Amino acid sequence: MTDTVIKIDSLVKRYGELIALDHLALEIKQGEVFGLLGPNGSGKTTTINCLLSLLSYDKGTIQIFGKDMSPTAYDIKRDIGVIMQNVAVYDELTVQENIDYFCGLYITDKEQRKQYVEEAIKFVGLEDFRKFRPKKLSGGLLRRLNIACGIAHKPKLIILDEPTVAVDPQSRNKILEGIAELNRNGATIIYTSHYMEEVEQICTRIAIMDKGKKIAEGTKEELTAMIKNTETIKVTLHELPDEVLSEIRSLPHIYSAEVEDSTLTVSCSGGKHNLIRVLEILQDHDVHIGRVTTEQPTLNDVFLEITGKALRDKGE
């Protein structure tokens, strides 16, 4: 049996003149937590909808569990759990009734379903809210209910599209811990998020999409190795004479040094002792310094350099 859970090859989706997916290729292995990143309009949601056969596409192939995916491939769909960004539960049903309903779409045995529903309630920490209706739940609890409805039938493949948008920190941590546990229990997970720190925390491999194309793919370490920046040094100071700044800029492995709001920011590409060299120059010129930090590149740096865009608008 193949360990490839999803194989997408040369996927093309057009909306008139707009090409939403441009010969997209992805392969996701058993047991991965696969992050799918991209700015708004990059094609992430279109990819998921094609993957689930909710959208037809113009060209390409999609295989899940080694079989061709189609709208009527119910044997495949039975092993997939989907948690979309928009919460989809029934307002007239309680927490327990909602989970029971969605679990019942896949699990017909009543005793087994009862057990699965109870396990899902405990998994998302809604034991004290089982008789509440959705309108009585906070945003974070509602997200947890949405997840419980999507995973109660114990799917092998779970797709989570922005599951932590607008939730409180406690619920966010509970959701992220839950995703890690689902993965430890054997589920393969596709995860999309605007929160780069979440992707860094839980994803084993990541693909970055833009304009319907996959423009980079790899582990966090492989992606950060693709960009020019290898280290960012920040030093707070009162003032920095121009000649000292010029001396710092002339150091090897430094491609940018700027001062803004009393902070010197130095961007490095390669080299092992950049911080020591910068501090030596400042010390030689008796520059009074405050806080000093050095940072390795993050996924956000990778994303910004590769796409030219921020992943998350600060206003969201």
Rank of each mutant, 00 (worst) to 15 (best):
G125Q: 09
K110Q: 12
E97N: 08
N98I: 01
I121E: 04
G139K: 05
K114M: 14
V117H: 02
F123V: 11
V124Y: 08
G139H: 04
K131E: 15
C103I: 00
N146H: 12
Y116G: 00
A120C: 14
N98G: 03
R144H: 10
F102Q: 05
V117Y: 00
C103H: 05
F102M: 01
K122S: 15
F123N: 04
R113Q: 10
K122L: 08
L141W: 10
S138I: 14
Y106G: 05
I99Y: 13
L141T: 02
L105N: 07
F132V: 05
P134K: 10
D109L: 05
K131V: 14
A120V: 15
E119P: 00
I107W: 08
I107H: 01
R143Q: 03
R143V: 03
F129A: 03
R133K: 14
E97D: 13
I99R: 07
G104R: 12
D100H: 04
R144D: 01
I121Q: 07
L126A: 03
D100I: 05
S138M: 14
S138Q: 11
N146L: 03
D128P: 09
E97Y: 06
Y101L: 11
L142A: 07
L137R: 12
D109M: 07
E127M: 08
E119M: 03
A148F: 00
I107V: 08
Q96M: 08
F102A: 00
I121A: 05
E111G: 13
R133V: 12
E119F: 00
N146G: 08
K110I: 09
E127A: 06
R113N: 05
F132G: 06
R133N: 12
Y101M: 07
Q115H: 07
A148D: 04
T108E: 14
E118V: 03
L142K: 13
P134L: 13
F129L: 08
R133D: 09
L141K: 08
L141R: 07
Q115A: 12
S138Y: 15
G125L: 13
R133H: 15
C149H: 07
L137I: 10
I147V: 03
I121M: 08
G104L: 15
R130Y: 14
K114S: 15
K136P: 02
D100W: 01
K114H: 14
A120M: 06
N146D: 10
K122P: 12
G104A: 11
L141Y: 10
F132N: 11
V117F: 03
K135I: 14
R144I: 02
R143H: 02
E118S: 02
F132W: 13
S138E: 11
E97I: 13
E97Q: 12
Q112G: 05
E118Q: 06
V95A: 06
N98M: 01
A120D: 06
D100F: 04
C103E: 08
L142G: 02
